[in-house]
Design a protein around this nucleic acid. Sequence first.
DNA 1: CGGAGCCTGTAATACGTATTACTGGCTCCG
DNA 2: CGGAGCCAGTAATACGTATTACAGGCTCCG
Lengths: 354, 354
Amino acid sequence: MSAGRGRLTQHEIARMAGVSQTTVSLVLNDRCEAAWRIAPETRERVLRVIRETGYVADPLARRLLQQHNQILGVFTYESVFPSTSANFYHPFLSGIEACAESIGCDLLLFTSAPVSGGSRRIFHDNNRIRLADGCVLLGREIPRDELARMVAGAMPFVSVGRRDDAHLPSGEGGPVPYVGADYAQATAALVRRAVDLGHRVLAYVGVGAGAESATDRLAGFTAAVRETGVDGRHEPVGGRTAAELLDALRSTGVTAVFCEELVEAAAVAEAARARGLSVPGDLSLVALGDPTRQAETDLDFTGFHIARREMGWQAIEVLDDILHGRDSDHQRLLPCQLVEGETLGAPNPATDRA
Amino acid sequence: MSAGRGRLTQHEIARMAGVSQTTVSLVLNDRCEAAWRIAPETRERVLRVIRETGYVADPLARRLLQQHNQILGVFTYESVFPSTSANFYHPFLSGIEACAESIGCDLLLFTSAPVSGGSRRIFHDNNRIRLADGCVLLGREIPRDELARMVAGAMPFVSVGRRDDAHLPSGEGGPVPYVGADYAQATAALVRRAVDLGHRVLAYVGVGAGAESATDRLAGFTAAVRETGVDGRHEPVGGRTAAELLDALRSTGVTAVFCEELVEAAAVAEAARARGLSVPGDLSLVALGDPTRQAETDLDFTGFHIARREMGWQAIEVLDDILHGRDSDHQRLLPCQLVEGETLGAPNPATDRA
DNA sequence: CGGAGCCTGTAATACGTATTACTGGCTCCG
DNA sequence: CGGAGCCAGTAATACGTATTACAGGCTCCG
């Protein structure tokens, strides 16, 4: 429709209806609230032509003048539709789509953003982010410079997942809006449960740095350990094999291991099985959240689920609030749902003191 | 980059560099190939200001002028991201996304289209289809009136899945462009294989009407049956239970059943098990294609896969060809990949003549 | 000397829409 | 009768960029 000369414009509609372009614009935008109305019969005539032709205002021209397209951008730092169908990001997108539908917006996937250095970049030579009214950012980790430019620029946006703004130039556009999962609370709750069950030496396995989802988990672990007064240590994965890691943990009397990701939990479980240790009999294992990377395991890990669909939905809600100047809560942490599982139990008194 | 009043425009850059807006535009677009060049020192001065300010041309104004916006629409007759993550449409979208990325286009998901009568409609009161340069249609069945309007209108489009155009007003815009799966060939190949194995009485179970994917399967079945000279019958599912259906089939000597969808194949298999019949010992079963509806079954059905990801990719390819006036093949049927499975075997001579 | 041709650059315009300012015609009422 | 006020609508303009047409100044050559 955009190509060729016979393009459908307001002028064309106006010609067909025998009115002026201005009239078409007025009818389209339905400014009845103004004191001056278009005569009902003229209005009807214009509307009929519009219906017959299926005319829609060009969003670009519209956007050039004022600032809303009913288009919300979705920027993912990975492929939106990865080849593996059971995908971590899918529920987020499901929520995003549903909410967008409910508020009558279309979604623009920035598939034109080229991949450089392993991930997409928003700000490349010919970035098209401004096609959208606002946008949602989705990804485990968002480069700080990109986030800084988003905050500095005037493009309204919401991040799915909490983002630190400590490193951003302050006063440059306020805090970073996000809808995240309360990893800290959920992790702390699991630590408390472990302590209640009798565990006294706990370990956090994972980098605990970089992405906010990692730092939050470690922060929750650390806070709960301090609060309950037990021994809690942070074991980086390092270059070690799971077996080496397991041995290091056991030699220091650790009875409950909190793994940052499911893959790590699965690896430790496998190593434990190889050592003839039972889970949770000899060792308790907790997997902190839904897997971002798929892992082969048949264990029903104790841990928590994050409300991914709900996060996607609320991200759009917040974006809509921002776009309409509504002053709702623009930084939200949603509670995680604890998963009972069967890998967290009471410590074995025999091995405990070994 | 920043909107509002202090917006950075070519005019502003021009003012700073002491030249005209035109010059800035010329420098930006680097039209050296034209016979008339900007003086190198002027050019440098402009470039320096651009570098200093970090100016980027507004893509909207640019597109407004160039008459196309590198946006391809995706219209799905169901939710794009359904709640079940393992989803039939996912591979199509994966291919669509990958190809869009390769040609530098963004994707617009028409989530604003309201659902009426169980499925979305393209042409509703405030349809926004023209936001895109062209669009891809995705769905098991596309209402004929919608298809007719697409063909009649000037919006370039490609259907994922073959669409009949016999009912369309002819000469109104040529045939319907599509990228489909060659259900007929795949079904015929399976019929031939069954005949080679010794089957002489075959049945097609399913509606075999409505969606083109259904009619094509039945057509392939019918053609191969005629070609091989065996007995082939079409058994509509009707209101019967799977058990009743099974009995009806067996009473007429059918030894191989070709099911339109996996759900039907699974139901017949379950009924056969209940009757104490073995598959494929007493009855051969073929499932014609990937499941559009999920079915509970642990059987490894003989059948075929359709190249969903490839279909998505090629649909975008064809759309791109159309948009650029390239005269490639706009109606494509991709071969299906046969799946050996274990539900098609030689007929049992004992039960055969029973 | 005059005008053709080049060199460097600018003014004007177009894209499609939304808004502002305005107009011609009518009614109403002092 | 005249002007205030309304009605129904239109002309003009602005948004930011790309392109076209053109303009001044210079050189060169017949």
